[in-house]
Design a protein around this nucleic acid. Structure first.
Lengths: 159, 159
DNA sequence: ACGAGCCGCCGAATATAATTCGGTATAAGG
DNA sequence: CCTTATACCGAATTATATTCGGCGGCTCGT
């Protein structure tokens, strides 16, 4: 499916303003509300829009810590990878996990109530592959830039 | 401001379902629509809800690469940190940046159209502090777990 | 214990918005 | 040149958000 300029405009806008009314969005992209809605529904149906989220100021909700962990597997077997990944999946405090190239195998971002819980998580992860991995923890001291969507104008320039 | 069980229920739900209608949300938390809306408005006004986002399947929008970079400053002066942080701020392809403790000073997540552009970004970052930092790049090969909000039940248990 | 005042709830009325559904124009393909 | 598919629009309908007055229960001071 190909996206035209109007689709991109819609995506760009709702990325950071998901609750914009269809009427306002329609005005923004210079379409009638019905046509605009039709496009949004299509983008949803095609799986291009994958969900709608509200972001919270977590500090105002509860006390917590955030860590970023690098993980290196000692044993690069598919089996160990599967076991580790399923452990990651099962721990809700792990909010992001990436498989990467380079000196590490995974990056994790973890948000949990306290260090005691962080230690437990660490042990679960290490235990999942019978201690054959190395985790390096980095406590987040500041969030300089938080995710606020992708700059689509930068990406689409390439196609 | 203190949050009661209903507030948490609201937050928990809209975290991943931002477009739920107020009526449905009200039913979910067993309140009348008017009371429910009042609470949501309060959560917004207090800065507890910070925004509403749509997430995209980027692969269906355009070709791109994603990298995670670790950054170590050679010179830990406040001045260099400020210069680096402002460079980070000015580069839209850097979608996340954390200051951390440990062997690195920053973690970056970068989404850009291609490696050529990634190199440019690298040079801008290194140049921002007169080459006195070390960047280590890790290309993301798989997104095992993408951010889908925080498990508030895990956090609030601690208060 | 009692009354005042505050809070948060509800429901009805009203205002906005979403959604549906023809009908029409444009562009591509045969 | 005709056919078909596509995407648009506007009006009608349905659904939702929003406002507001009033009601109960809680707290607090007396």
């Amino acid at each position: 499916m190909k996206l035209d300029r109007i689709d991109l405009k819609i995506l760009k806008h709702i990325q950071t303003n998901a609750k914009t009314t269809n009427q306002d969005l329609a005005a923004l992209v210079a379409l009638s509300p019905s046509s605009c809605l039709q496009r949004v529904r299509r983008l949803e149906a095609e799986g291009i829009i994958t969900g709608y989220y509200a972001t919270l100021n977590l500090a105002k909700v509860s006390r917590h810590i955030m860590c970023i962990a690098t993980v290196s597997m000692k044993n690069h077997s598919a089996k160990d990878f599967r076991k580790f990944e399923s452990a990651v999946e099962s721990i809700p405090e792990i909010v992001e996990c990436y498989t990467v190239s380079g000196e590490f195998d995974f990056f994790l971002r973890i948000v949990c109530p306290n260090m005691a819980r962080y230690l437990e998580i660490n042990e679960m992860l290490v235990g999942s592959v019978n201690y054959s991995l190395k985790i390096n923890t980095h406590v987040v001291m500041n969030e300089n830039k938080v995710f606020k969507g992708i700059d689509l104008s930068k990406l689409s320039s390439d196609d």
